[in-house]
C-alpha cells in the first residue's frame, strides 16, 4: 500500500485542481493509498513509522523540496522507497530523480523503478542533495587526515548530488559511490594577459568536520542551520528512491 504525505501548502485552494487531477490519475493507475495531511503541529515522522508497522510499502511526498526534508529521516529509518509528486512549482529533488511535475509524475510512480542512493549526515540530521557553507573562514577537516582552507575568496560546498539551487548549472555528483564531494570554488589569480579564472577543487570525502572560531552557518537542502561545529558523514545506499528516465545520476 502507498502512503501519500500531503504538505500543508498543498491543501490550499490554489492547488485544488492540480491535486484533484493527480488523484484521478493515481486512481486510474490503481496506486491510490492512505493520505496523511501535514499541519502545523502534525509531524510526519511518527506517522510514517506507524504506517510502516502497519504494512505500507511506499512513501510518496506530495509537495516540494521542504516536504522531502521533513520526511527524509523517517523514510530512511523505516527503509521504505520514497516517491515524489511535485506540487506548487519547481522541485530540485524531483529534477534530480527525473520526476516531472504534476500528473506525469504519477506514471513514474506506477513504473516503480527504484534506485538506492547515499544520504549525507550533518550533525546527525540527514540530507539528500548537499550543503553550502555560508561562513567563509570555516575550515574543513577531511577523513581525520587533512585540513582544507581557502587562501583566496571562494565558496565551499559538500555535495551528495549537488546543492538544490545549482541543479541545472553543473554536473551532478554520483550519489551511489559511497562518498560525498567537497567542492570549493575560488577566484584564482589574475595574470597580466589573462582574466581572472574561477577554479574548482573537488575532493571525495567519507567524513568531515567543519570548524571555525565563530558560529558556522550552512544552507543544507535549502534549510539554514547554525552551530559551533558540524560533523559531516555519509550513509551508503540507505535511501531508496523511485526514479524516472530523466534522472540526473
Amino acid at each position: 500500500m502507498y502512503l501519500y504525505i500531503y504538505d500543508e501548502f498543498v491543501q490550499e485552494k490554489r492547488h485544488e485542481r492540480e491535486v484533484a487531477s493527480i488523484e484521478n490519475r493515481l486512481t486510474d493507475l490503481g496506486i491510490t493509498g492512505k493520505i496523511i495531511r501535514l499541519a502545523l503541529f502534525k509531524r510526519a515522522d511518527e506517522q510514517i513509522r506507524d504506517e510502516a508497522r502497519r504494512g505500507v510499502s511506499t512513501v510518496v511526498v506530495v509537495g516540494n523540496d521542504h516536504t522531502v526534508r521533513k520526511v527524509l529521516d523517517a523514510v530512511v529509518e523505516v527503509g521504505l522507497p520514497l516517491g515524489m509528486i511535485p506540487v506548487g512549482g519547481e522541485s530540485a529533488f524531483a529534477r534530480m530523480i527525473g520526476v516531472s511535475s504534476g500528473v506525469a509524475s504519477c506514471d513514474v510512480l506506477s513504473a516503480r523503478v527504484i534506485q538506492q542512493v547515499d544520504v549525507g549526515l550533518l550533525n546527525g540530521k540527514r540530507f539528500v542533495a548537499g550543503l553550502r557553507v555560508l561562513t567563509p573562514e570555516a575550515e574543513l577537516f577531511c577523513d581525520g587526515r587533512y585540513r582544507v582552507t581557502l587562501t583566496d575568496r571562494g565558496t565551499m560546498e559538500i555535495h551528495n548530488f549537488t546543492t538544490f539551487d545549482a541543479i541545472e548549472q553543473e554536473e551532478v555528483g554520483n550519489p551511489q559511490d559511497g562518498t560525498l564531494d567537497a567542492v570549493i570554488r575560488t577566484d584564482g589569480r589574475r595574470s597580466f594577459f589573462r582574466r581572472k579564472q574561477s577554479c574548482q577543487t573537488r575532493l571525495p570525502i567519507h567524513t568531515a568536520f567543519l570548524q571555525s572560531k565563530h558560529p558556522i552557518r550552512v544552507l543544507c537542502d535549502g534549510e539554514e542551520m547554525r552551530a559551533d561545529q558540524f560533523q559531516i558523514g555519509v550513509e551508503e545506499g540507505t535511501l531508496k528512491v523511485i526514479t524516472g528516465r530523466a534522472r540526473k545520476f
Partner: peptide, 11 residues
C-alpha cells in the same frame, strides 16, 4: 580529485 588554486591542504 582536484586541488585548485586558492585552496590549501594540510596533512
Amino acid at each position: 580529485t582536484v586541488i585548485a588554486q586558492g585552496v590549501k591542504v594540510d596533512g
